[in-house]
Design a protein around this nucleic acid. Structure first.
Lengths: 199, 199, 199, 199
DNA sequence: AATGAATGAGAATTCATTCAT
DNA sequence: AATGAATGAATTCTCATTCAT
């Protein structure tokens, strides 16, 4: 997640950035097919023709955004998983980071929501399949952390895979709610989120 | 009338049912605009024209389904909330019911997922706004149960509204995952779900 | 024109009559393609299916009505033309009859308006072409009366064919206005109408 | 901007003009619903999609044309009515102008025919109602001229409103015949037309 | 790089017609 | 005779994509 900003900033081309930012917002809200090229162009403040200088097609723009989403969400989990910490601490860090990034702006929520839309709406081409596989990683990684934590008596008991699914489902649901509820949304504390897995 | 009224109603309902069932499945997966009328008709085994005997437009079909979704999901929560039970017990029952219904078939998951799409994809007409309001009720009701349970020391401490959001976010996320993951999905136990709110 | 009623009455089948009457009204107002079978059936108080017991197609229903229109409007002119009267008197009789029938009800106006739609909207099949030829007769007959009247000094001078066109154009226009203007329409006197050709 | 604003307007107007001209011809002959978008596009030599760059819908295109028709036909009458002339002279001028314009091309006839179709075929929206009111003006204005002319003994006696209706009915009928009869149509002289009101 | 007019394929919708009852 | 559910072809309309400028 923290990479995202850098990655965006690295793009020298301002118009490209504006387009991606507008597209992310619209895709995450309305989905791939409910979002029109004209909508994106209008929101980005450019002409619809220009969009095709930067992206071969609407699908490709979508795909590229999903790629970013998958990479940035997966990345931070792998990073924390790789640290030499206790399982409970890892879960607390993941939760803290998650809540913190969600607090900052809508980008992370949009990325997470996009990842679900990928599977439901996207074409079934190579890139998509690859992305889908990548998107499943966090569940696997978290399963491992949970199993380890249970051995150490730090984590609630239960099927680790089921627990990982519940945890990410909650995160995914929070992202979705954040976009849907607008002003009425309130982010729970990191402790509450960790509480799904840790007593 | 050469045909009895009941026979007509029967037939009418049969085709109507098939259409609604097909539409629920497709809308919950792909969303309103990614689902074509032909897709729905094909899946329902009827001609695309027939769809317009029963529904004025694709939007109206979507809207009617969302209405069902909101009513049926809201209904069971209000029901349990109205029982003379302790808060912890109410939460356990809600969780048990939720998990149980999700186990049965995809309908409930589809309904829950549809409710989110309503806000993101639907037109902003009266019906939609009304539905959206109705869809927010569960969070409110659960907040009340949580607050009461905290007074009785049965429920974890924390902002009740935030906790209710987290809980429903988890439920919502589970429904979404169930549709997305297919075979790879595993439903967590009701205890794990209650565990978000109860120690 | 006076035949019309008889012809209608001769039809034993009540439903057939109701359908034709409804169709005449709708076709004369909205034209062939703007009038739907359901509209006609609804106005006639029957089911749309029944319509196909009496008429092979919408076109045929239209065609049959136009046939009536042509026959009844052409008929009465030929009749008066055949009488042993002076030209001026013939023109006065035609005008008087015309105004009188227009006063009675909308049927005649509807017939005249329909005849124009025939040429503009109808298919170019045999029946239509035949009808179109038939519809041109009144102009020819009136031309003859005018020419004769001019020789006798009873009728204004000018090209008889042009004058006949102007006269029927006025009649046609009156019928059109009668349908369009509704309450605001006022029928001119027969003298005024004859005045187009006679001083 | 790589293209000057004028060039854009030019082009825009070119295609727009071609579409409107084609539509006027088709609508005036076949009416609103018997004319398909594809027909119009084909006749205009553009793609059917382009039509929707310039007009929101077929109805709107129709409506815009009717607006033109009403404005242009009403305009010339008001103009002549406003001149400081005797009533008989005004009627002669109106008739002369009318016949002259009908001689030039089909546009005027198409406009007049369109105005009738407006009331019979158009939606009952604001614009339509407004147009319909405007379309009734010529009758009112001519009534005034007739009444004045009768006081001066220049115009035939009779109810001025009825006479105005007959006059415009004749004009309307001529326009209709011009389109229907094609080669067989012959325009009467302006004197013949004035003769409806003046001896 | 940038524009938006223009295209055409595809989606929604309508409606004449058929048919089982 | 009578019904209206059901069909599918035709029509309106949308929108991703191209292209001349």
């Amino acid at each position: 997640m923290p990479r995202t900003q850098e990655q965006f900033n690295q793009m020298k081309d301002e118009a490209r950035q504006k387009i991606m930012s507008a597209a992310l917002c619209l895709f995450s809200h309305k989905g791939l097919s409910a979002t029109s090229i004209v909508d994106i162009a209008k929101k980005a403040g450019v002409s619809s023709g220009l969009l095709y200088h930067y992206f071969r097609s609407k699908e490709e723009l979508f795909s590229e955004l999903v790629g970013f989403a998958v990479a940035s969400s997966g990345g931070f989990i792998e990073e924390i998983a790789g640290l030499g910490l206790g399982s409970a601490e890892k879960i607390r860090r993941i939760s803290a980071k998650m809540i913190e990034t969600l607090k900052e702006d809508d980008t992370t929520a949009q990325y997470f929501v996009l990842m679900v839309k990928l599977t439901l709406e996207g074409d079934l081409n190579e890139k998509t399949t690859e992305n889908a596989k990548e998107a499943a990683k966090p569940v696997i990684i978290l399963s491992g952390i949970i199993a380890q934590g249970q051995s150490a008596g730090e984590v609630k008991s239960g099927n680790p895979y089921e627990m990982a699914i519940l945890y990410w489902a909650a995160v995914q649901g929070l992202c979705s709610y954040k976009l849907v509820m607008g002003e009425n949304f309130m982010l729970p504390s990191a402790e509450l989120l960790s509480g799904i897995l840790i007593n």
